[in-house]
């Protein structure tokens, strides 16, 4: 564990707390993509099934349980308690275009040919693009509540912090995880456009609005 990874994980944790706070404070899931949240549940379940078979650390186990349960809870909030505030008509990204290619990539690129390992690869590839329905929705509506942009910024920061973590591990431990690194760089790149608007508008006290 190094500081980049630790702060990355904390940023990930914070993003979920911000998301739950947004839903609670506005009593609404408006502006959130159900598809993205459902993809995150898929990602966490696919990757963290090993919580039953592998033990890394107490920290690792607790985080896995937190990510699986909190992402499922968000789905419940979107489809249960706050269902009336969810608008599926603007959440139109076709997730099958993500699931299919990620499944194919996982069948081609993995470290071992076993069910859990292929599932692990699938979750890595899927996580890298899981934010797309949300970004697509943002693009479509052209605006976002400030609190929602803080959620996205924390999520993006988590991914960005993993990159120096890999560089650090490369020279301190001499290890490299090509699948995670490749997917992680793609994932971080997807946030660049969002970050540009976040830094130039939201952090200057303006509303998140995209030029028409």
């Amino acid at each position: 564990m190094n500081l980049f990874r630790f702060f990355g994980d904390m940023s990930h944790l914070a993003s979920i707390l911000i998301l739950l706070y947004k839903i609670h404070a506005t009593r609404s899931v408006r502006g959130l993509s159900f598809k993205t949240q459902a993809l995150y549940v898929t990602v966490f379940v696919a990757r963290y099934l090993d919580v039953f078979t592998e033990f890394v650390s107490v920290y690792n186990t607790l985080m896995k349980i937190f990510f699986i349960s909190s992402s499922c809870f968000v789905l419940y909030l979107m489809k249960g308690r706050y269902r009336p505030t969810n608008d599926p008509s603007i959440d139109t990204f076709r997730v099958e275009y993500l699931l299919g290619p990620c499944a194919l990539l996982a069948l081609i690129f993995h470290y071992r040919w076993s069910f859990l390992e292929v599932l692990w690869s699938f979750s890595i590839f899927l996580e890298s693009v899981a934010i797309l329905p949300q970004l697509f929705m943002l693009q479509r509506t052209g605006e976002a509540e400030t609190i929602t942009t803080h959620y996205l910024a924390a999520l993006g920061a988590y991914r960005a912090l993993y990159i120096p973590n890999w560089i650090y591990r490369y020279w301190s431990e001499d290890v490299i995880d090509p699948i995670a690194v490749t997917a992680g760089i793609v994932q971080t790149a997807l946030y660049l456009d969002f970050f540009y608007v976040y830094f130039t508008k939201v952090l200057q006290g303006q509303k998140f609005e995209l030029p028409a």
């Binding site: 990757r47 592998e54 985080m63 071992r112 290890v175 995880d177």
Partner: peptide
């Protein structure tokens, strides 16, 4: 460098 294949990251 060697590939980790160890999934110790989240």
């Amino acid at each position: 460098a060697q590939e980790t294949g160890l999934h110790d990251e989240l």
